[in-house]
């Protein structure tokens, strides 16, 4: 009888904290996955705006075919990678690819807006202005959603690595989540600076 009770106590002493730690890991994993879903929403919005932008710009920027083609290619590439990474939040390979694709999309978009400075008619176009505003805002949303994702991923990673939850993480295959970094991200957050002097 005593043996049974002792065994029971041991099992409870080990299993109960284990369950609590496991649940904590699951909650943190859900948190960063949810944060990634928020990025995905904003990236989709960004990608949806670009065809409209190219459509609007085309008529004005006849001599910039190359840039426009580069924008469309970068956009299509980024959209494809977005769809692939949609179901793989935190996967290092997906996050690296996504970061690179969005970074280069940001780069060519920046070039497009820089070139647009030379076309006063285009700049006066209301449609263009409102698209520019929407894109700027979407860049910011992506940036803030990415901030939230990286914070959530860091908290999850901490839980995966610290003692004792790392034991549970190892047993149940909780792997580290990768951060999402965009190259060239500083230039994305603000519209191009214009100087009249």
């Amino acid at each position: 009888m005593e043996v049974i009770i002792a065994l029971l106590v041991i099992v409870i002493a080990i299993v109960l904290p284990g369950v609590l730690l496991y649940n904590r890991l699951v909650r943190k994993r859900n948190a960063f996955k949810n944060a990634f879903a928020q990025i995905d929403v904003q990236l989709k919005r960004r990608h949806d705006l670009i065809p409209n932008l190219v459509e609007t710009v085309q008529g004005y920027m006849q001599h910039e075919r190359e840039t426009l083609t580069a924008v469309i290619e970068a956009r299509n590439n980024a959209e494809q990678i977005r769809q692939q990474s949609q179901n793989a939040p935190g996967d290092p390979d997906s996050m690296a690819k996504l970061g690179q694709a969005e970074g280069s999309l940001g780069g060519v978009l920046g070039r497009l807006f820089a070139l647009s400075e030379a076309y006063p008619d285009l700049k006066a176009n209301e449609n263009f202005q409102s698209l520019q505003e929407e894109l700027t805002s979407t860049e910011n949303r992506v940036a803030y959603a990415r901030q939230a994702y990286n914070d959530a991923a860091m908290r999850y990673n901490n839980a995966v690595e610290v003692v004792p939850s790392n034991i549970i993480a190892g047993m149940f295959n909780f792997t580290r989540a990768a951060m999402l970094e965009f190259e060239d991200r500083e230039s994305l957050q603000e519209p191009p600076q214009v100087s009249f002097s």
Binding site: Q38, S130, E133, S137, N140, Y144
Partner: peptide, 19 residues
């Protein structure tokens, strides 16, 4: 209004940042 839309966008952005 362009300035109003900019304001509204900024508010929505900050809502994401502030959660």
């Amino acid at each position: 209004n362009a300035t109003h839309r900019r304001l509204y966008n900024v508010v929505e952005e900050m809502a994401i940042a502030a959660n």
